[in-house]
Each structure stands twice: as structure tokens, then as C-alpha cells.
């Protein structure tokens, strides 16, 4: 697996608190091409700690690309240059000896920077709380095979449901719009029979909270799709647009 080590210059965003002014701190580092970028940060932190300096605060958990906790902007791209790859799965073999990297947090008004590379993405949870569910109580479910769902529909719903909620779509968007995230969740339920009874209430409730949480509007640049580590399609946004329009035509609730 391993080849020769490479030397990189890393400029990493440091910011003590939400109010503090941030700046780039420069690190020169020799690293193994098999290491992931987060392991490079681990190493830098280990050295900083050893020297008695404050380590770089950043979030990560599963390191398998599924929990959505990690998310750095590397040279202007959320999750770095590799398509369909979360930050934790970005290995240094994708960079060349002598490269310079700028590592920053996701930037958006809706994502407040808490410290260094950690941002507050709680807006996403608020949107989900507003309607990202099917209303029924535990214990009342019929047999799983009573609801027949074509393989194609199930696959499409899963394509949307794969969203890991990392926020890269917002970070990539020049408008900081969360429509790919919301579109994906709306679509998962809009595609499945289980989601039909609340289909139009759901989309209205979720869009309302999305708008309240300072996310921008979509202008169809599709940067979100290009940077999404799960490759969630912008077709989901179209579906949400359609459902939202239909909802406003159809329902009389949710004033």
C-alpha cells in the first residue's frame, strides 16, 4: 500500500470562539500517503499537545464516511477534491509532494463557527423535527410485506435517504442553501407509500423551518450535488419544489 512520504504545507483555520477573529496557522508536515487527512490532523494535534499548545478542534467520529460528523473545506471544496468522498475518507495519496492545502470550516451564516474547524449544524435537526417523519405509534405497524414497494421505488428512496447530514451542500452553495438536504428528506418520504398521508404538510413544515434558519435560496448551480459525499441528486430538489407548489395549491392548512 504505502509509497514514499510526501511533504505538504497546511494552512489550518484557527478561531478561539464564535466571536473571536480567525486566522490561518501554517504547518509544514511530512506525511504517509496512506494516512487520511484527519489522521494528519491527529498527528499535528499530538505534536501540539506534546509541546503544550492547544490542539486544533475538529469533529469526526465514525471515520467511515457515514456519520456525517466530519466536514472540512479543503482548498475551497467541502470534503476536498475527491468526488463522493467524506473528509475522513480522503487519503493523502490524492495530493502531490509540495502541495499547499487550505483547511477551513464550513462557512455559512446558518453554521456558526464554535471553535477552529467545528461548526454548529443544529439547523438541520430543527428542519427534521419540523416534519422529517411518518406519524405513527410503535406497535401499530402492519406486517412489513403488507406494503409492497417496487424495487425501483425502494432504490430511489434509499438514494435520497443516504444523506449523511454533513452540511457539505450548504458549505458548497454560494447561497448557503440547504435545499439538497431538505429535498433529500422530503423525497425519501414522497417516494414511499408510507409517506403519502403527510406528504404535503411535511414539505411545507420543513421548508418553513429551513427558511427560518437563515439558509439561502437555491439558484440551481448544483454545486451541492457535485460536492455531496453521497452523490445525492438535485432531482430531489426538483421533487421538493413540485411538492411544495402542489402543497400550496392543495391544502388549506399551515397558514
Amino acid at each position: 500500500m504505502s509509497e514514499k512520504n510526501i511533504n505538504l504545507t497546511l494552512n489550518i483555520w484557527r478561531q478561539e470562539s464564535p466571536e473571536a477573529k480567525g486566522y490561518f496557522e501554517k504547518f509544514e508536515k511530512e506525511i504517509s500517503p496512506d494516512a487520511s487527512i484527519l489522521e494528519v490532523l491527529d498527528e499535528i494535534n499530538n505534536r501540539l499537545e506534546f509541546e503544550g499548545k492547544e490542539p486544533i478542534a475538529f469533529e469526526s467520529d465514525c471515520r467511515e464516511g457515514i456519520c456525517g460528523a466530519c466536514g472540512l473545506v479543503i482548498n475551497g471544496q467541502p470534503h476536498g477534491p475527491l468526488p463522493k468522498t467524506a473528509t475522513c475518507q480522503l487519503h493523502m495519496r490524492n495530493f502531490k509532494d509540495g502541495d499547499t492545502l487550505y483547511i477551513e470550516p464550513f462557512r455559512a451564516t446558518a453554521f456558526k463557527i464554535l471553535k477552529d474547524l467545528i461548526v454548529d449544524r443544529s439547523g438541520f435537526d430543527k428542519i427534521q423535527v419540523a416534519g422529517g417523519f411518518v406519524s405513527f405509534n410503535t406497535g401499530s405497524a402492519p406486517d412489513g410485506n403488507v406494503i409492497l414497494i417496487s424495487k425501483e421505488m425502494a432504490d430511489q428512496a434509499l438514494d435520497a435517504a443516504e444523506c449523511i447530514g454533513c452540511g457539505a451542500c450548504v458549505a458548497a452553495c454560494k447561497n448557503s442553501s440547504a435545499m439538497l438536504f431538505v429535498g433529500a428528506k422530503v423525497s425519501q418520504f414522497a417516494l414511499l407509500p408510507q409517506g403519502q398521508p403527510e406528504r404535503y404538510e411535511r414539505v411545507q413544515a420543513m421548508v418553513k423551518v429551513m427558511d427560518e434558519n437563515l439558509f439561502g435560496s437555491c439558484t440551481n448551480t448544483y454545486a451541492c450535488e457535485a460536492e455531496c459525499p453521497k452523490g445525492i441528486s438535485v432531482l430531489n430538489i426538483a421533487r421538493m419544489n413540485r411538492d411544495y407548489f402542489m402543497a400550496k395549491l392543495k391544502t388549506g392548512t399551515n397558514e
Partner: peptide, 9 residues
């Protein structure tokens, strides 16, 4: 299934 978990079909 009732929650809308898209299991393989």
C-alpha cells in the same frame, strides 16, 4: 418499514 426505512426489495 412503517417508519419509511427503505429496506432492499
Amino acid at each position: 418499514v412503517a417508519q419509511g426505512v427503505p429496506f432492499a426489495r
